[in-house]
Simulated assay, not measured.
Amino acid sequence: MDGEIERFIKVWLISTTCLCYCYYISSKIPKGFLRLLSILPILYLFLILPLNLSSFHLGGPTTFFLVWLSTFKLILFSFNQPPLFPLPNNIFHFISIASLPINPQQSNSTTTFSSKKSILPLTCLKVVILVAIICSYEYREYMHPYFILVLYCCHMYLGIELVLAISAAPVRTMFGFEIEPQFNEPYLSTSLQDFWGRRWNLMVTGILRPTVYNPVRHIIRSYVGSTYATSAATLATFVVSGLMHEVIYYYLARAPPTWEVTWFFVLHGVCTSVEVAVKKILLRRGWRLHRAVSGPLTITFLAVTGNWLFFPQLLRNGVVSKGIGEYAILVNFVKDKLPLHLIS
């Protein structure tokens, strides 16, 4: 554990140095392909740095932050696109925005205080539920497979939300940034469009929209019209998301891709496009499914397809078991490092 933490610190020190280069050097180069060319060595380093980490809970977030978020943000920065443009006056702001799920918008103190008060009880409840899920894994052999699937889905949602919120919270406290909302109660989704576009992993949605969706839609629209361009852009966005998940799966499992997770996103891209088209037709006729029906249908479809294509690669390569086992290692590490004898 000590060695992994040391490697983790080195990875982030190197990453911070790379972002300093982007702030001081690349920002002086005119926007466009010349600036992108100056950033390419940094993008390469961000691809290989997470390979130094083998743990699930340190390597996973680092891969997501560097390989996906930072890479896409720096590509947008090459063409003077948000969130790194306009260039922050403070280098620490630049590094925080580039490497973490941070929205570079100064928060209103009154709104933030009231928001914290309303969010805190729900966050505490989510922590309690996550701990209960982790503890329940000891009795997996006595559980029905479908119930285990529910636990995995809840664990993934709660784990990602809490880890990303915790990682960005210190920066928000120091600089007054608002944290990009990662999730908006995805269990209340009433459609695939609602789930992927408005409720699940909104930071990724906000990054893929300007890097994939908008360019593809703009290029294709003049050839096939607005409707087909929207469908093609949606499918392209899901394909890129699937490929990025394959990359993250490789860093976690260190096994060749099986493309199951890519097909998961291709399937959802096709289904989302069809759903949007069908909804438009039904709405013209005044038909609309009640949320009491569409909600369970959406969650069921997500769970079934996730069990079919999303989770198998993680289960087959032992990533899930590895992640669960790290909780015990973390507890033992804390016990060894804390001076508990002073308390007793």
Rank of each mutant, 00 (worst) to 15 (best):
A233W: 00
I220D: 02
T272C: 06
W263E: 10
T230W: 08
A236Q: 02
H218C: 13
A229M: 01
V212R: 15
R221L: 01
H218F: 13
R217Q: 06
L267R: 05
L192V: 05
F265L: 14
P170Q: 07
I219V: 08
Y250R: 11
P170N: 09
G242R: 01
F264A: 08
L252E: 10
F265Y: 15
R172N: 12
R221A: 02
M244T: 14
I219L: 12
V171I: 13
A255S: 13
S191Y: 01
Q193R: 06
W196S: 11
L202G: 08
P170T: 06
E185W: 07
E246Y: 05
A255P: 03
V240T: 05
H218V: 07
Y213K: 01
V240Y: 11
R198V: 09
R217Y: 03
V239F: 06
P257K: 02
E260H: 09
R209M: 07
T230G: 14
W200D: 10
F238V: 01
A232D: 02
E260D: 11
P257R: 04
S231E: 07
L188Q: 09
E246R: 02
V266Y: 11
V171Q: 11
Q182T: 08
I219N: 03
F195M: 09
F264G: 10
H268I: 04
P256L: 13
I166M: 10
V204I: 09
R254K: 08
G197H: 13
D194R: 01
L202N: 01
Q193I: 03
R254M: 14
Y213V: 00
S241Y: 05
L252F: 06
I179L: 10
S167P: 05
S191A: 00
V239Y: 03
F264Q: 12
V224I: 13
A232W: 03
I207R: 09
P170H: 05
G197D: 15
G269A: 04
I219C: 02
T234Q: 05
S226I: 09
V239M: 05
V212S: 15
T237E: 07
V224M: 13
N184V: 02
F177Q: 09
T190G: 04
V171N: 10
T272G: 04
F175A: 09
I166R: 05
F265H: 12
V266A: 03
F195D: 06
Y228M: 15
G176N: 05
T258W: 08
E185N: 12
